[in-house]
């Protein structure tokens, strides 16, 4: 559903991402891994519109991988969207979230700390509520249609709070929740924005093994029950190997491997990148890994 092609991002003299291409298939959990500084978060920021890529194309379509010819035709035109295909590099961040329906979480949690957990999930449903409030006029007079929309939003938020076991803390400030709960709340908030692709930046960072297991279950549930595809950056290899259908490995801004967890585990260049061995010793490392 997401096709990244020859994506490059340059910051001054630093080439953070260098000609990266990969696909995210619909219904898959795709993991983006690599050593620190490999450019994973930069790729995320390009996909979600927080950075404008220097070169490259990012095509998103909710209906699964789009026809390459249709993407080319759209690229030649000046528009951002046609027949359900969005060219993300042409869109500002909030439109990517709204129209292309790509939601994300952040490496350093970005909850609205001074708002309650419930409010966080209601803010995420800004678009449908805004539409129901009709330029705030229906909301100001308390029209029944707006009340109904608000109740539906509250229902949905309550449902998500129940799923992440935070129903009893719904009215507490998000900033007062324990770290693991904040991580889950941020994922629930992104889900309330009604995405088709959810991008998670290190969702398991700082979680203990039990919380990691809960997280894995939550991510599986998101994929299976809501049909939302997932793209995640993660350093915790046990989580990555357990839930990913497809792994893309980055090092120094380039893709060094792309495949199923089993393939990645056996890939010598991945092992070399992670262990930091000189090229001439790669063979030795691979031999060791296979034995």
């Amino acid at each position: 559903m997401l096709r990244v092609e020859r994506l490059s991002m340059r910051f001054g003299g630093l080439l953070a991402v260098d000609g990266l291409s990969f696909d995210v298939r619909r219904g898959d959990i795709t993991a983006l891994i690599g050593p620190n500084g490999a450019g994973k978060t930069t790729v995320f920021n390009c996909i979600t519109g927080f950075y404008k890529p220097t070169t490259g194309r990012i095509a998103m379509s909710a209906e699964g991988l789009a026809d390459p010819d249709a993407i080319d035709a759209l690229t030649r035109s000046s528009s951002r969207e046609r027949n359900g295909i969005h060219l993300l590099e042409r869109m500002p961040d909030h439109e990517i979230a709204r129209h292309a329906r790509v939601a994300r979480t952040f490496q350093n949690i970005r909850l609205f700390a001074g708002m309650s957990a419930l409010e966080n999930l209601i803010v995420a449903q800004h678009r449908p509520l805004m539409r129901a409030s009709i330029f705030s006029l229906a909301g100001l007079v308390g029209a029944p249609s707006f009340r109904a929309a608000e109740n539906a939003a509250k229902q949905k938020a309550g449902d998500w709070l129940a799923r992440i076991n935070l129903l009893d803390r719904a009215d507490d400030p998000a900033g007062a929740l324990p770290y693991g709960d904040q991580r889950r709340l941020e994922i629930a908030r992104a889900m309330c924005a009604d995405p088709v692709l959810l991008c998670l930046d290190e969702p398991a960072a700082g979680l203990n093994p039990r919380e990691s297991a809960d997280l894995t279950a939550l991510l599986r549930m998101i994929r299976d029950e809501f049909g939302v595809s997932l793209l995640l950056i993660e350093h915790d290899m046990s989580v990555v190997m357990e839930i990913s259908d497809h792994i893309v490995v980055l090092d120094y801004g380039r893709k060094i491997a792309d495949g199923t967890p089993a393939e990645i585990r056996a890939d010598p260049s991945v092992i070399a990148a992670y262990l930091g061995v000189p090229d001439e010793e790669v063979d030795a490392v691979v031999q060791e890994a296979l034995s």
């Binding site: 709204r98 700390a113 708002m115 209601i122």
Partner: peptide, 23 residues
């Protein structure tokens, strides 16, 4: 208590998170 007001407060709390939610 309307979405616009909540968006104002969310903006005060974290502007980048607002944009990631399509605001």
């Amino acid at each position: 208590r309307l979405p616009i007001g909540r968006a104002w407060e969310a903006l005060r709390e974290d502007e980048i998170a607002c944009r990631s939610l399509g605001i």
